[in-house]
Design a protein around this nucleic acid. Structure first.
Length: 535
RNA sequence: GCGGGUGUAGCUCAGUGGUAGAGCGUCAGCUUCCCAAGCUGAAUGUCGCGGGUUCAAAUCCCGUCGCCCGCUCCA
């Protein structure tokens, strides 16, 4: 998240997270996982309405990616196929992909300042006065810099300038120091425990306040086979993308696809987040919607631009206000291990209630280069290059990959936050302004009173509608209560059967957003709702 | 992991040593001709858990766990 450009929208209009969380529980969208046992941090269950909402978003993505992919820049439909791969794969997959190494973040804590650092981000350096003049100019850098050895200690081991230089060189060599940003630096993660004790942490009053690096492995470990020995170790996938790369060859060999083409997948992924936070925003079990677009390296940039626009428009199409969405280019030093060499990663960020007025990541569109396919080719010793005979002369190359990867779980949170609309004038004080196509319940059929032949008419209509889209039938309480409940769950249309209905064969449709009513013939109501779902 | 906050009914919360409460919601019934109306009735809690002090603990003390917020990480 970051301080973004000023917003047009009044932030005070934004729903408070605790209100949203309370609504989600009260109305059956999202519950804390294993709540009756006290819950479990970082896991959430989708309730009856939540799963409807999630499936609507998921199905829309699948439809727009796989069933009916976008039209490409040349006017022809893109070619994208789907897969659904295993959550557990051969553990070598995650070594090849870089996740065993890259998802293993060593962290150190400062006992004095209570700050936590990534040991591989925290640098140690020689202070200016200890650096021989041959290495000048040397400016202190970066925020997180402190000296490794005390001045006295260093001078003790060096009798002359010659010797000083020599000791210096030996230390540099022995410790894998690098010369960067005008200074000799080394990552804290590479220090021995003895060296670590001499490090002066940022903001601390003395040296030696850092704890030894603790491994934070973000991958869930499990065991395949009932004996569960270390040899049976396996991982739950931290991203669905690798399942796609693993099947790239199968798809190319069997599915008559030609580069450029895409493979899409929706599925659960698991990460032992250091700190799960913000409701379902960062949970340890979550669902991804990922598409890997395979293309020639020369065209990667073009496709990155294409997918950026496509994806932003898609989020708008499912009902997200453009004011709440921005692009954010990743800085070079925050790029993932797979995106270093390419055109980088662009995030689509949303102004979540807990990030406002800043934004939080919703979807990443990354240029993964040929990192994954090359890695798997090397590790698996299987040739993964693509042979292209559609050009003259024919060529052989490793496709590059553009990856629009979004969080379905995060998408649900976006739809919820986006839909929550305060309205003090109505009994419920708020309503959920879902786009009709995303709303968990599309319509409710409500007999104004539960007698005088009204239920019979209403039920007939209900049976007709429920066969086409999610419809509820409700006779409970007075009509105001029923409208209020449907405002809270975001039902866009309430169809009310009144005492005129037996005579005129029509009923009123009550619109959620305006509370206005319109009388429509009974036999036109289904069609009316169906049409609105296509918008 | 560290720091701060918090834990009482499905939800929001009151209750600071003396028989566990309110509003809303839920359920049953009456009523009800368009926005949580009205009436009657009902269910729901070992007050997060464990220990201690006390004649007596939701309340005081100690411990522990969950959740929320901040820091590091991510879709």
């Amino acid at each position: 998240m970051q301080a973004a450009e000023t917003a047009n929208m009044d932030i005070s209009d934004m729903v408070a997270m605790d209100e949203l969380v309370a609504l989600c529980k009260r109305r059956g969208f999202i519950f804390p996982a294993s709540e009756i046992y006290g819950g479990i941090n970082g896991f959430w269950d989708f309730g009856p309405l939540g799963v409807l909402l999630k499936n609507n978003l998921r199905d829309r993505w699948w439809n727009d990616m796989v069933v009916c992919p976008p039209i490409g820049p040349d006017g022809a439909p893109l070619q994208i196929v789907g897969v659904d791969t295993a959550i557990i794969q051969n553990p070598k997959v995650w070594e090849a992909s870089g996740h065993v190494a890259g998802f293993n973040d060593p962290m150190v804590d400062c006992k004095e300042t209570k700050q936590r650092f990534r040991a591989d981000h925290l640098k140690v350096y020689f202070p200016d006065e200890l650096i021989p003049s041959t290495h000048q100019p040397l400016n202190p850098l970066i925020e997180h810099v402190e000296n490794l050895f005390s001045k006295e200690e260093f001078l003790l081991s060096a009798q002359s300038l010659e010797e000083l230089l020599d000791v210096h060189k030996r230390i540099i060599k022995k410790n894998n120091w690098t010369f960067k940003d005008g200074c000799w630096t080394q990552m804290v993660s590479q220090l021995t425990p003895e060296q670590l004790k001499k490090v002066w942490a940022p903001g601390a009053s003395k040296s030696g306040t850092l704890t030894e690096p603790k491994q934070f492995n973000l991958m869930f470990k499990t065991y395949v086979g009932a004996t569960a020995t270390e040899d049976d170790k396996a991982y739950l996938r931290p991203e669905t993308a690798q399942g796609i790369f693993l099947n790239y060859k199968n798809v190319v060999d069997n599915m008559r696809v030609k580069v450029p083409f895409g493979i899409a997948q929706i599925g659960k992924a698991f990460r032992n987040e250091v700190t799960p936070r913000n409701f379902i925003y960062r949970s340890r079990e979550f669902e991804q919607m990922e598409m890997e677009w395979f293309c020639h390296a020369d065209e990667a940039k073009k496709w990155l631009e294409f997918w950026k626009e496509q994806r932003l428009n898609w989020w708008k199409a499912v009902g997200v206000e453009s004011d709440n969405l921005i692009f954010r280019q990743h800085d070079q030093d925050e790029l993932s291990h797979y995106a270093k060499e390419g055109y980088g990663t662009v995030d689509i960020e949303y102004r979540f209630p807990f990030t406002a007025p800043g934004y939080g990541e919703l979807e990443g569109i990354a240029h993964r280069c040929d990192f994954d396919l090359t890695a798997h080719q090397t590790h698996s010793k299987t040739k993964l290059e693509y042979f292209d005979d559609s050009v003259q002369p024919p060529r052989r190359f490793m496709p590059h990959v553009i990856e629009p990867a979004s969080g379905l779980t995060r998408g649900v949170l976006v739809l919820l936050a986006e839909a929550y609309t305060a309205d003090p004038s109505r009994p419920s004080k708020m309503y959920m302004k879902f786009k009709p196509s995303m709303a968990p319940v599309k319509a409710a059929v409500l007999p104004l009173v539960n007698k005088d032949g009204l239920p019979e008419i209403a039920q007939k209509l209900y049976y007709e509608m429920r066969a086409q889209f999610a419809t509820e039938y409700d006779t409970k309480g007075n009509i105001g209560k029923r409208y209020a409940r449907h405002d809270e769950i975001g039902t866009p249309f309430c169809v009310t059967i009144d005492t005129d209905t037996p005579n005129d064969q029509a009923a009123t449709i009550r619109f959620r957003d305006t509370m206005a009513q319109e009388r429509v013939a009974l036999d036109k109501i289904s069609e009316f709702v169906r049409k609105s779902l296509k918008e």
